[in-house]
Design a protein around this nucleic acid. Structure first.
Length: 302
DNA sequence: ATCCAGGAACTGT
DNA sequence: ACAGTTCATGGA
C-alpha cells in the first residue's frame, strides 16, 4: 500500500493502470445506492473503523487520490485503516498489466478493455456485506435488489445526515444475528433469503466464519468449497464473493445471467452462449476471469 | 399477461 | 448423480 498521512486528509498513490472517473461510472450505476454518494466528481463514504465512524470525501488528484476527512478519524492508526480500506475497495493490489496484455489478443476483451481502461474491480471488503449483497441479488432484477439493500441498510444500519446528504454504514453482524425472519419479511425479503442472511450473520457472530479464515485456505478450490457449504451460498455466490471480497482474480461466476447477456452482446449472438462455451472462454482468460466478468458487466449499462 | 431476473434448496427418480 | 419444482417480487 502506497499512501501518505496529512492529518486532515490522506493521499493514496494507485498503480498506473487506474482511472478514477471509470470507477465512478461503476459506482454510480444505481441511483438507489445507499452506501456511498457521488457528487461533483467526488466520492463520499461513511465507514466504521475500530468502532469509530469516519466520513471521507475522495477526489482525484493525479497521480494520487485524496481522501479528505469530514468526520474522524481520531488516531493515526485509524487513518491507516481508512487508507487500507480504500486500497482494498479499489483492488489496488492487483497489477492489471498482464490482464491488459491478455486482452489485447482476445476478441471479446479487446474492446471492453479499450473502452473502460483503468476501471478497477470495485470490491466489497466486508465479508458479511459481500455475502448479504450476493444473496439479495440472487434471481431478482438489480433494481429490486437495490431496493431491498436500501431498506435493509436504512432499517438496521447506522445512518447520519450531514448538509442534507444521508450516509449509512452497513448493518452490524451482531444486530442481524439477533433478528427473526419476519423482521426481514416485512422489508419484502423472501423467507429463504431472510433465513440465509440471518444464518450467515449468526455464523460470523459465533466465530464460525470469517474473512481471515477463508483467506487462510490453501487454494481456490478449498475456499470455494467452504463458501458453498454455507446454507444459501451456491456456486454463483461463492464465486461472486471470491471475486468482490477475497480478490481472487480467477473467480468466475459462469452461470451469471449478466455475464451471458454481455457475451451475447459482445459476440453478436442471437442466443445466449451455453455454460460450456463460457467455460472455454474462461480458460482463455485464465487468472483473469473475474476482471473479464467485471468488464463485461460494465458493458451492459451504457 | 407473460417471462425473466447478477440462484439455491428441496424433492423425487 | 440428475432433472424438475418451489421460492418471491418487481421490471420490461
Amino acid at each position: 500500500m502506497n499512501w501518505s498521512d496529512h492529518e486532515l486528509y490522506i493521499e493514496i498513490f494507485p498503480p498506473k493502470e487506474f482511472d478514477f472517473s471509470q470507477c465512478l461510472v461503476f459506482l454510480a450505476r444505481s441511483d438507489q445506492e445507499i452506501l456511498h454518494q457521488i457528487e461533483g466528481g467526488c466520492l463520499f463514504k461513511l465507514i466504521k473503523v475500530d468502532g469509530e465512524l469516519v466520513l471521507f470525501k475522495l477526489k482525484s488528484t493525479p497521480p494520487s487520490i485524496r481522501a479528505e476527512f469530514l468526520i474522524g478519524p481520531q488516531s493515526t492508526n485509524a487513518r491507516e485503516k481508512v487508507a487500507a480500506y480504500i486500497w482494498e475497495w479499489f483492488d489496488f493490489d492487483q497489477d492489471l498489466r498482464s490482464f491488459y496484455h491478455l486482452a489485447a489478443n482476445d476478441n471479446v476483451l479487446r474492446q471492453v478493455c479499450d473502452d473502460y481502461y483503468g476501471l478497477r474491480m470495485m470490491g466489497i471488503p466486508d465479508l458479511f456485506e459481500a455475502l448479504t449483497w450476493a444473496i439479495i441479488g440472487q434471481q431478482i432484477n438489480l433494481t429490486f435488489a437495490y431496493t431491498l439493500k436500501r431498506r435493509f441498510v436504512e432499517h438496521f444500519g447506522e445512518c447520519m445526515t450531514i448538509e442534507g446528504k444521508t450516509f449509512c454504514v452497513f448493518p452490524e453482524v451482531e444486530k442481524i444475528a439477533s433478528l427473526h425472519v419476519d423482521a426481514l419479511r416485512k422489508l419484502q425479503f423472501s423467507s429463504r433469503k431472510a433465513e440465509y442472511i440471518i444464518g450467515i450473520a449468526q455464523a460470523i457472530n459465533d466465530g464460525e466464519l470469517s474473512k481471515d479464515m477463508l483467506l487462510q485456505k490453501q487454494d481456490y478450490q478449498q475456499v470455494h468449497a467452504s463458501l458453498v457449504s454455507i446454507r444459501g451460498v451456491g456456486a454463483w455466490t461463492a464465486d461472486y464473493v471470491m471475486m468482490k471480497c477475497l480478490h481472487y482474480s480467477s473467480a468466475f461466476p459462469v452461470a451469471d445471467v449478466g455475464l451471458h447477456n454481455a457475451l451475447k452482446k459482445q459476440l453478436g449472438l442471437d442466443e445466449k452462449p451455453t455454460i460450456e462455451e463460457i467455460r472455454v472462454l474462461g480458460t482463455e482468460w485464465e487468472g483473469w476471469q473475474a476482471y473479464a466478468t467485471f468488464y463485461l458487466w460494465r458493458s451492459l449499462y451504457e
